[in-house]
Amino acid sequence: MKIVIFGGTGFVGLNVAEVLLARGHEVTLYDRKQLPAGAERFFADHRERLSIIQGEITDIERIDALVKQGFDAIILGAAITAGDQLERTTTSSILEINVMAQMPILSAAIRRGVRRVINLSSASAYGAAGQRYPVLDEETPCDPVSFYAISKFTSERSVARLAELWGGDFLSVRLSAVFGPWEQIGKVRDTPSLQFQILAAFARGEPALLPAPGIKDWTYAPDAAEAVAVLIEAERPRHRLYNISSGAAWSALQWGEAFAALHPGLECRLASPGEKTFIKLHGGDRAPMSVKRMADEFGWRARFGCVESAAAMSAWWMQHKEGI
């Protein structure tokens, strides 16, 4: 299939692109940013099936001309992933990029007969409900709090409503605590995963000191990308919303210890009282998301748990750390 990923040179976009290319699809990445240097080298072997277009997500005319070229699927991955500081300074932009910028793309998809659109949402849409329920499934009532969470929840409802009005095959997925290859921070993403921050400390030659264990249903990015690919290829998904998660809660501390065990000299531990740490949690613990819907309908489950993802990330890190 021919697939365009908006926000394609970002963290999740690159992982999805890698999986789709490996499955034989043609992929176009649309983003305001160029490919990171390490990714430029990695994706060089796929140039015959990979196109990269630099452009703003708000450039309606350029996006319409792109969609007019004919695509089987669109992935909406452009977003401002905001923590408290970015939320304070870019409130209007969060809503503009994460919600309103999707509307012209969806309209173009309807006009041009795009087979399927997948909106990449977030577990943050559950908001405060994550502290009130033991497990979060797609029917759990949401209580989004931050502007990022509000924007993601609103994007899901907007995508679903347009699908109802025009008959489009539009889906949303809630991604849970994703970490892994190609993760990056920047002007539109200031909430790096604990795993990213652990590796950053290791790269500086420092011990990774965590303020707390950091328990979540952490999801290795290649697993999340594979789930998105499954939904793109599915003939007739039965739902408009799917959770994508490892389905099990474990701590970033446990992951960091597993990673450090593979590299003598590295250390990951909790910070002692009064000991300074630069690692930030970016939100507290919450209930894990259920993936029963994905498992029952498609047989999909995450392949990487805590130890497995640490080993896989270790191999990736050794191969790519010069370009990080």
Rank of each mutant, 00 (worst) to 15 (best):
Val4Gln: 04
Gly7Glu: 09
Thr9Cys: 08
Gly13Pro: 05
Gly13Met: 14
Asn15Asp: 12
Ala17Asp: 00
Arg23Phe: 11
Glu26His: 15
Val27Glu: 11
Leu29Trp: 07
Asp31His: 02
Arg32Gly: 06
Pro36Cys: 04
Ala37Thr: 11
Asp45Glu: 12
Glu48Ser: 14
Ser51Met: 11
Ser51His: 13
Ser51Leu: 12
Ile52Pro: 09
Ile52His: 13
Ile53Gly: 03
Ile53Tyr: 12
Ile60Ala: 08
Arg62Cys: 15
Asp64Val: 14
Ala65Pro: 14
Gln69Val: 12
Ala73Glu: 05
Ile75Thr: 02
Ala79Pro: 10
Thr81Ser: 14
Gly83Ser: 10
Thr89Asn: 06
Thr91Ser: 05
Thr91Gln: 06
Ser92Asn: 14
Leu95Lys: 09
Met100Pro: 11
Met103Tyr: 13
Pro104Gln: 00
Pro104Arg: 00
Leu106Gly: 04
Ala108Tyr: 11
Arg111Leu: 15
Arg112Phe: 12
Gly113Ser: 03
Val114His: 08
Val114Cys: 03
Arg115Val: 12
Arg116Ala: 02
Ile118Ala: 02
Leu120Cys: 03
Ser122Cys: 09
Ser122Ile: 01
Ser122His: 08
Gly127Lys: 00
Gly127Glu: 01
Ala129Gly: 00
Gly130Tyr: 01
Leu136Tyr: 03
Glu138Met: 07
Glu138Phe: 09
Cys142Met: 11
Cys142Glu: 14
Asp143Thr: 15
Ser146Ala: 02
Lys152Leu: 05
Lys152Asp: 01
Thr154Lys: 02
Ser155Asp: 10
Arg157Thr: 08
Ser158Ala: 10
Ala160Glu: 07
Leu165Ile: 10
Trp166Ala: 10
Asp169Ile: 11
Phe170Trp: 03
Ser172Asp: 08
Ala177Trp: 00
Trp182Leu: 03
Gln184Asp: 14
Gln184His: 04
Gly186Tyr: 07
Val188His: 12
Arg189Glu: 04
Pro192Lys: 00
Leu199Trp: 01
Ala201Gly: 01
Ala201Cys: 09
Phe202Glu: 08
Glu206Lys: 11
Leu209Lys: 07
Leu209Arg: 02
Pro211Cys: 05
Pro213Phe: 01
Gly214Val: 06
Gly214Phe: 07
Lys216Thr: 03
Trp218Cys: 05
Thr219Pro: 02
Ala221Arg: 03
Asp223Pro: 03
Glu226Asn: 15
Glu226Leu: 11
Glu233Pro: 00
Pro237Asp: 08
His239Met: 12
Arg240Leu: 13
Asn243Trp: 13
Ser245Arg: 04
Gly247Lys: 01
Ala249Gln: 13
Ala249Pro: 02
Ala258Lys: 09
Ala260Val: 06
His263Ile: 09
His263Phe: 08
Glu267Ala: 08
Glu275Phe: 10
Lys276Ile: 15
Gly284Asp: 03
Val291Ala: 02
Lys292Thr: 15
Arg293Pro: 07
Glu297Pro: 05
Phe298Pro: 02
Phe298Lys: 02
Trp300Ile: 01
Cys306His: 13
Glu308Val: 15
Ala310Phe: 01
Ala311Val: 14
Met313Ala: 07
Ala315Met: 13
Trp316Cys: 06
Trp317Asp: 13
Met318Val: 15
Glu322Asn: 14
Gly323Ile: 05
Gly323Cys: 12
Ile324His: 10
